[in-house]
Write a protein that binds this DNA or RNA. Structure first.
Lengths: 349, 349
DNA sequence: CGCGCTCATGACAACGTTGTCCAGGCTCTA
DNA sequence: TAGAGCCTGGACAACGTTGTCATGAGCGCG
């Protein structure tokens, strides 16, 4: 079956009423193909009369330019990809929105996908986006080896990593000051008289978790406190296990009087545990959580600015797209300690 | 300047090292163009030896198929668009994620954008997505007139509206039972002895807000209670104005003893106001909010299942894409009353 | 009045892929 | 051993757009 027959077939057999093309518009308006293109793109060199005729044909046929053909011809897709961990996580919503706003300001659309913290899925997604020829990529890494992106970056895909650094590859990175923030948070507890302070965080293979753990250790060391193994619980995020970890630290011969939690999900579970606990226990959490101010006591947190992370990364990406390529850079954003009560409770021995 | 010269120009002048194409791979492997295409797409009819040679050339050149050319040829883009109100809103995160999961299961990518509750921006976004030739569109409407999508839908863009119905157009819609949910929530307050019940909600031009208001009125009418104007505050979402509205209802000669709030953002502000109020006031909110169970008292809510809304809509969309087009349908998902304390407080006259 | 200049317009190739069809070489069978 | 049939591989067109260049009409000016 020759192409022309096939096309007719598709016309009738498919539920897609084939969309009109510039060629159809041109035929209807009695002008050349290129003239239609000129009108559609508001290029100069078309008389008002011709323009009107073309516009009428466009309206009559319901023509809309096929951007995917345009992209093929022009080389740029005016879209960027965002690979994050989980869109449903309240931390990534604002980040994603910030990236979107910057993209919009540059006339680009945003394609995004969740890796679900799975390195394979991250890679699959990132490469799928590259195959779509996104102009750039913002990646919140799940894995720790990004050499698979090297050919893409070399081929011109601007890439910026956010929240966690890229693995085994030289690239732009925008991070929060995880170490400093955690150190400040723990030091805050120490300043309020605590010495037996627990830490519950995610797997140390995740960069942010490792840095926050380092911050905890640094603060303890600065205060000359020897950390006991029983005070630390790593690689724990599932609510049930967080609960057991917290309860473990609060029981035993020398229970902790304060807990530092390594991320928002851990924090909310620990808040639940502490609400049931008879003795008051101090708490500082990494990441802000909604309504933290309304709890009794309010939850003191080390807050990151998720929107600023996203904005900074996206702006960096477009700078790279619009101008000459600067050397990869590591940008670190400060965190902010927000005191609300839970972190200022004195130790209750 | 002829095309060939221009291309060479782009090669040297641009920071994009032009990516290798199938043609390049074919040349290097010493085979025909189509044979490369066959290997890339795992089509039959290639001897193992030829396949190996082609694969080597692909690896050596770092070739990746250009999906945007593929799309142009095949007609389908394997991507769907999602137009929502604000990605940063905790209600839309899970919804968006659910749509993404369904898309992923169908091998499609998700492009999304926020309308910021601006009808013009919604239209601009939706049409931009159509120009990209997304296969389908999930829209959370900001405006109330969607006739602009009629040509697109006729041309084959599967479209499903979520959370709010389409305006002046016949299309699939997936909604929560806003009226019923609000009626149940208000009836719950009435069952606990309240009669002077306030309502604070968004502008009635937003469908969900209007339905919830109707639910409030219906419950009051069922109980034979005449609603006073002073008990209702419409079109109010900015925290400052919500605060004033709540304070207004709680003051005066016959203050309300309970408040029903029309969405999550209103609820959190009212919770703040009530926390400062001397008399206990009952509260039921539409939409669940995180940590609602940990507040004192816990916040009773009428919860929608955001993920189910997204999943249902996306599944409907792909059913439309994969099979014959069924007639537009209106799907309504139930809401769930979650009692946590604030809605069970007795009236304090 | 004719020369050249400007300007609107259109023909054509190219972007990188996939569908169709044909050619040639091979095997298998009569 | 010749003819039929199968299988591999390649040439070519087409998807819908945009960049380049050619063309010819209209016009001003000498």
């Amino acid at each position: 079956m020759p192409e022309t027959a096939r096309r007719a077939d598709r016309l009738s057999g498919s539920r897609y009423g084939n969309r009109p093309t510039m060629k159809d518009v041109a035929a209807r308006a009695g002008v050349g193909l290129k003239t239609v293109s000129r009108v559609v793109n508001s290029e100069p060199g078309v008389t008002p009369d011709t323009e009107r005729r073309v516009q009428e044909a466009i309206d009559a046929l319901g023509f809309r330019r096929n951007d995917s053909a345009r992209v093929l011809r022009k080389g740029r897709t005016a879209s960027i990809g965002l690979v994050l961990e989980d869109l449903a996580d309240p931390f990534y919503g604002p980040l994603s929105r910030a990236v979107e706003e910057v993209a919009r300001a540059h006339g680009a659309l945003l394609i995004n996908g969740s890796s679900a913290e799975d390195p394979d899925r991250e890679q699959e997604l990132a490469l799928a986006l590259c195959a779509r020829r996104v102009d750039g990529l913002v990646v919140i890494p799940a894995g720790d080896d990004h050499r698979y992106l090297e050919p893409e970056m070399k081929a011109g895909v601007a890439t910026v990593f956010v929240d966690r650094p890229a693995g085994r590859i030289d690239a732009d990175v925008v991070l929060s000051d995880n170490l400093g923030g955690a150190r400040d948070g723990v030091a805050h507890l120490i300043a309020h008289g605590h010495r037996r302070i627990g830490f519950i965080g995610d797997m140390p293979r995740i960069h942010t978790a490792a840095e926050r753990l380092r911050g905890y250790r640094a603060a303890m060391q600065d205060a000359g406190i020897a950390v006991e193994d029983a005070w630390m619980s790593l690689g724990v995020t599932v609510p049930e296990r967080v609960r057991r970890a917290a309860e473990g630290m609060l029981a035993g011969p020398s229970p902790v009087t304060a807990i530092f939690t390594g991320n928002n999900r851990v924090t909310v579970t620990v808040v639940r545990v502490l609400a049931e606990h008879r003795r008051p226990v101090a708490l500082v959490g990494f990441d802000d959580i909604e309504l933290a101010d309304l709890l009794q006591p309010g939850v003191t947190v080390v807050a990151q600015d998720a929107a600023a992370l996203g904005r900074t990364a996206a702006e960096r990406l477009f700078r790279r797209l619009d101008g000459p390529s600067p050397a990869p850079e590591r940008i670190e954003l400060p965190t902010r300690l927000i005191t609300r009560g839970s972190g200022e409770l004195p130790p209750a021995d």
